[in-house]
Design a protein around this nucleic acid. Structure first.
Ligand SMILES: NC(=O)c1ccc[n+]([C@@H]2O[C@H](COP(=O)([O-])OP(=O)(O)OC[C@H]3O[C@@H](n4cnc5c(N)ncnc54)[C@H](O)[C@@H]3O)[C@@H](O)[C@H]2O)c1
Ligand SMILES: NC(=O)c1ccc[n+]([C@@H]2O[C@H](COP(=O)([O-])OP(=O)(O)OC[C@H]3O[C@@H](n4cnc5c(N)ncnc54)[C@H](O)[C@@H]3O)[C@@H](O)[C@H]2O)c1
Lengths: 252, 252
DNA sequence: CCGATTTTGTTCTCACGTTCACAAGCTCCT
DNA sequence: AGGAGCTTGTGAACGTGAGAACAAAATCGG
């Protein structure tokens, strides 16, 4: 019989068949690469080929795939279709997930018009907005509906994923409504930190943050000699009201 | 005098005043939290307060800030305005960075209409598209210009950041053009892995990947008993052409 | 049938990131 | 002036992630 294994120090703590978070974040990239190879009529690919297509190093790719099982063939590589199916199954996109989008402004419109979600395992079942002048507008096949209908829609369409594209102000309130209605995964575009109860997953997309990270590295490239002098902290910390205005604004 | 320090084992390798990547990614969040506190009229905040506002743990926040210098006061906390300025300076958003957006479709329109960049250290100097029927269209204060004008614009406006919102197909080509024109930081929305030479930074935003990560966790929440059986690999790997179609599509 | 060749799956080691815990330093009150 | 009470800055421990390296397994040619 199998002896009760004591955890080796350094081994990642992971529940049965749990996959490291860093790996989970790369699986969709592999899935996309496999789909591209498949569309090019390629039936088999080595870890090196796949790693190149996915923009990662091949050892990392092999280790990532090894968490799913042994789906390759030594000396040969991976069967593209088979591996694609296995990854899709592991991620959970062999069937479609129902999604609602809340806040049909600039960004909400763009998402609603985007055809890429359908081919990647998601089905947008409702576009919701609180603005009465938007309700009833047609976008592609869909019609904008009133945010008040949220609970009904979530319940009848088994919606588990919500996307927030409202301004920052109402975002927490919208988030709470989504959670109360039964949504357990949220993708947030509003520039604000949302708090959710345990059991609800939240991810954020923040374009200003991405640009600011680029700006940081850009600044170092262009030579730090160009940096302004560090103003020293005065003896008293008061009287600092007239510093130059700086980026980092809050709000919609 | 300062003795030449030999690297302690375990200490992160970092060039003079270099900041760990994970910290750099959080500084914009702190900046936003500080701006919010400042707008609420709060002049001083403890690491605990700030950490709550930024959605991180306070030890992490203190360690992150310690890479910038000692800007707090023991027993008191941090001066909100002063710290905000220091972080903005470190990120490099005390002045605006010029940005071009390439591909003015659904997403490009949304970004062009977004007012949030201006208040966070960025100035959109041009909207570019290859489609002649779009060139000349007015969006807010700006007019869509021909992609062919790229080089001229980059040179005359000292543009160092480019945003790609074209379909996946032309994205690499557009990327190469941007780099050749002198752009050294790129934010990519197209679902494709771009390759760039050393010295050019690239970040990607991929909504389908975000949703798929949520789907993975969602699947585990709803009980794995619901998972389809794992199909076994047949003795030969051929003849696998009729697997169910799965999410992960490629293309625009 | 066997050895050469290819490529996976995994182990080992090092680097990076997070969190705890506490001494050092500042303010305020008596 | 001196001690009580906070809060920062950081050393040290721990956990996670990345990559090099290699043994194991499969194919293929002779
Ligand atoms: N547009 C962009 O390119 C862009 C870029 C980065 C970040 N963002 C962020 O994304 C979010 C949306 O941006 P946008 O430009 O689309 O804004 P927007 O103002 O155009 O649209 C917001 C929509 O949300 C709706 N709304 C407001 N309160 C609501 C509520 N309580 N319930 C339901 N709907 C509500 C409004 O009616 C409006 O239609 C903002 O938080 C913004 O900061 C947008
Ligand atoms: N719209 C969304 O919500 C959304 C969501 C996720 C990802 N994306 C991705 O973002 C990108 C843009 O999406 P979209 O919906 O705005 O697409 P879109 O088709 O509406 O717009 C693309 C624009 O790029 C322009 N273009 C094409 N080739 C070009 C070239 N070589 N040079 C310059 N311009 C060129 C086109 O003329 C068009 O205006 C796509 O890669 C898409 O996969 C979009």
């Amino acid at each position: 019989m199998t002896p009760a294994r004591s955890r080796r120090p350094g081994a990642p703590t992971r529940t049965e068949r749990g996959i490291p978070e860093a790996t989970v974040a790369r699986l969709p990239v592999y899935l996309r690469a496999l789909t591209a190879l498949s569309d090019s009529g390629i039936a088999t690919a080595s870890s090196e080929d796949l790693a190149t297509a996915a923009g990662v190093n091949s050892a990392k790719l092999r280790k990532d795939l090894s968490y799913l099982g042994s789906y390759g063939t030594r000396g040969v590589g991976y069967d593209v279709e088979y591996l694609r199916y296995q990854i899709a199954r592991e991620i959970g996109v062999t069937q479609d997930w129902a999604v609602v989008i809340v806040g049909i402004g600039n960004l909400g419109h763009a998402l609603a018009n985007y055809s890429g979600f359908g081919t990647r395992g998601f089905r947008i079942v409702a576009l919701l907005d609180a603005d009465p002048s938007l309700v009833g507008e047609r976008i592609g096949e869909m019609v904008v509906r009133d945010f008040a209908e949220l609970e009904e829609i979530v319940a009848s369409d088994r919606v588990s994923i919500g996307v927030i594209t409202t301004p920052a102000g109402p975002a927490q309130e919208v988030c709470d409504r989504l959670v109360a209605a039964g949504v357990t995964s949220i993708l947030n575009f509003a520039p604000v930190v949302l708090s959710v109860p345990d059991g609800v997953d939240i991810r954020k997309v923040d374009l200003s943050i991405e640009l600011q990270i680029l700006a940081y590295h850009e600044q170092r490239k262009s030579g730090e000699a160009a940096l302004p002098e560090v103003p020293e902290l005065p003896a008293t910390m008061n009287g600092l009201t007239d510093l130059p205005s700086v980026g980092g604004g809050v709000g919609a």
